[in-house]
Design a protein around this nucleic acid. Sequence first.
DNA 1: GTCTATAAAAAGATAGAC
DNA 2: GTCTATCTTTTTATAGAC
Lengths: 190, 190
Amino acid sequence: MPAALDPKEKQAIVGRLFEMFRDHGYEGATLADLSKATSLGKSSLYHHFPRGKEQMAEAVLGQGKNFVKSAINDVAHSSESLKSRIRKIVDAFDVIYGGGQNYCLLGRLSCDGIGDDARGTLREVVELWIDAITHLARDSGMPQVRARQYGEDWFTRVQGAIIMHAATGNAGPYKRTMAALARLAKEPSA
Amino acid sequence: MPAALDPKEKQAIVGRLFEMFRDHGYEGATLADLSKATSLGKSSLYHHFPRGKEQMAEAVLGQGKNFVKSAINDVAHSSESLKSRIRKIVDAFDVIYGGGQNYCLLGRLSCDGIGDDARGTLREVVELWIDAITHLARDSGMPQVRARQYGEDWFTRVQGAIIMHAATGNAGPYKRTMAALARLAKEPSA
DNA sequence: GTCTATAAAAAGATAGAC
DNA sequence: GTCTATCTTTTTATAGAC
């Protein structure tokens, strides 16, 4: 059990690692970068993550999973009105993506050489995300198969929109993607 | 003029570099990797690309630009029927993306630390791509503003579909994205 | 134009003191 | 739990022979 410091502190450290992996990718984030970002020496990082970067990526994806579970999936399955759930979810995405200007940790790491455990968690996060949107689409009146496709395609559009912004600075696709989700609450079926 | 070998050979070398940058990203592709992939010693690579990886990435993106220009943009603006143009373009994407199983060089490098010249070329390639799809949408009967959005959003979906496949192995979004383009030829306006 | 050899820098990882 | 110091390996880059 190499963890024995305040969970709050640990979470804050993982949060800094999160930003580094998100912004620089797995290969692009060096130990020196991660050390500086956390204000911890390299040895301290190894104390908390004995298996090095690989374990740090796992922790970061675990935090991402917690976020998606609580701020996206749980909200989608809550008992609030469809409109209210969608608004909260769009807001959550806007926060984590800075209105479409940030990179996405999931998209970034999905093409990188992360370990098998991290990759498994990555898949779980994506599934939680898609399941949430599928549920919203279902509640808007779509039949199951179509709702599932909607969920997959909406995830797809978000990921692509992040790349679009990175490549050209154009945030239009991101905005339209969020607007499309909001329309689910207004149309009998989209 | 550090280039003085058969243009065909050079093109083949850049093609191998293309695959390495596409599959491993800019940071992830090491000189050792690139050397092995091209069957050229590191010194030989520096002979052809004196500024190292940065210049290699520029060459690779230049080749990508040529491809998008000739196999996508020129085709979109040709005098063939809309249906025929769309089929050729979908086929071209299927070849370069292996039916949605390959990574995309553009998406990959757009988040990496490439140099300013390479980034400029990257933007140009994306613009050629979007312009091509916009032109097809226009020809299908869409008004200009909507057609441009269609082009941007279609690029977005393709990029996202590549990430979806990388993250989960699901090629559905890629297939649906290609199918959506094909539908442009069948509907009076989509 | 390509190679072997080598240098210089950076990255990942560990030892051991405090 | 954190640090400084150190070590190993990898990566980038160059020199110089062929």
